[in-house]
Computed example of a mutant assay.
Amino acid sequence: MLRRWQLNRGIGLCDPQVNPHCSNSPDWPDARRLRLLSFNIQVGITTQRYHHYLTRSWQHLLPHAGRANNLQRIGSMLGDYDLVALQEVDGGSMRSGYVNQVEHLAHLADFPFWYQQLNRNLGRLAQHSNGVLSRFRPTLLEDHPLPGPPGRGAILLRLGEGAEAIVVVMMHLSLGARTRTRQLAYIHELIGGYRHQILMGDMNTHASDLLVHSPLRDLGLLAPQIEATFPSWRPQRCLDHILLSPGLELEKVEVLAHPISDHLPVAMEIRLPQAQGGPLPPMLNASPVRKR
């Protein structure tokens, strides 16, 4: 069933884009640590009150001077992380000044590898996308449109090889509970064969729904974060998550007080399985991923 959906929706293996201006990918100071961040950046729009959704709605269609400054602020923050999941980024349309925001942030934060997933193509008006930034070349990268109305997607990235490989799925799920259940069932099929799993993104629901009342409930995932992420100016709901399988040891988790978007970013530092340790992480020596 999964393969039929993939064929129907055009899922494909893909290569990460390479940042030619990036310095050489550094060795990890501790080969068993991975620093993660997930952030819905709302295409670089600052929202500080609910009425801004109306009064600043034009910024979703037209360029504005503050967007470049916001991206600079985001880029400065991202430099502290190894793997970043971005939601609500623009892939290069009129509203962003024809700037691919994923690529731009990769350059600002000196990430060697990046990938933009285009989920809703409105031509010159908007290029609704997800994005990933990585310090390390993935051994597998896949682009997955999610079940439901067009416009939602997930990026699957694998680090390392063999039994201790880590699968990371970065996503932006639907608002509706029924559609979200279908999307999580699809994601369950993607990751079920891996021992070490990380799910990151704007999931539009609380952790209890994800871990207890969704198709993910039999995976034993952990949701260490308890702080709210939305709305950024007065957080009341925890909609943005980084979920871990039990074999990945948590070092630190926090919701960052950076109200640049209408969501707050979630940051986490984890310790990798012992078999992944050594002078260099296995993902640095991995062969390039296959081209779609």
Rank of each mutant, 00 (worst) to 15 (best):
L244T: 12
T179R: 09
A267P: 07
A267S: 14
E189Q: 15
L190Y: 10
T229I: 08
Q225T: 15
L184R: 02
L219G: 04
V212T: 06
L221K: 04
A228M: 08
M268V: 03
L243K: 03
V266M: 00
Q197K: 15
H188F: 13
D202G: 04
G201F: 10
Q274M: 11
G201N: 10
P235C: 11
F230I: 06
A185P: 02
E227K: 14
A223E: 13
P273E: 11
R271Y: 08
E189R: 14
P231G: 05
D209K: 13
P215H: 06
G193H: 09
A185H: 08
Q197L: 12
A257H: 09
G220E: 09
L221V: 05
R271M: 05
Y194R: 02
I260M: 00
E227H: 12
L250Q: 15
M200V: 02
H206M: 09
H213K: 01
P246K: 11
L243V: 00
L222P: 00
A267Q: 03
M200R: 12
L250N: 07
H258R: 09
Q274Y: 11
D240W: 00
E189C: 08
S208Y: 12
L248C: 11
Y186Q: 04
E269R: 14
R178L: 09
W233K: 02
V253C: 14
I198S: 10
Q197D: 01
Q225C: 14
S214D: 04
G247N: 14
G193T: 07
R182T: 00
L210E: 01
G247K: 04
R178W: 11
T229F: 05
C238S: 15
H241E: 11
A185S: 07
I270G: 12
E254L: 03
R234I: 05
L248R: 12
F230V: 07
P235G: 10
S245K: 04
K252R: 15
R237V: 10
E189D: 14
L248D: 10
L272V: 10
D218C: 05
L272T: 04
Q276I: 13
A275T: 13
L250P: 14
S245T: 09
P224F: 02
L272N: 05
L221P: 01
L211N: 02
L221T: 01
L248W: 00
P231E: 01
D218V: 12
A267L: 09
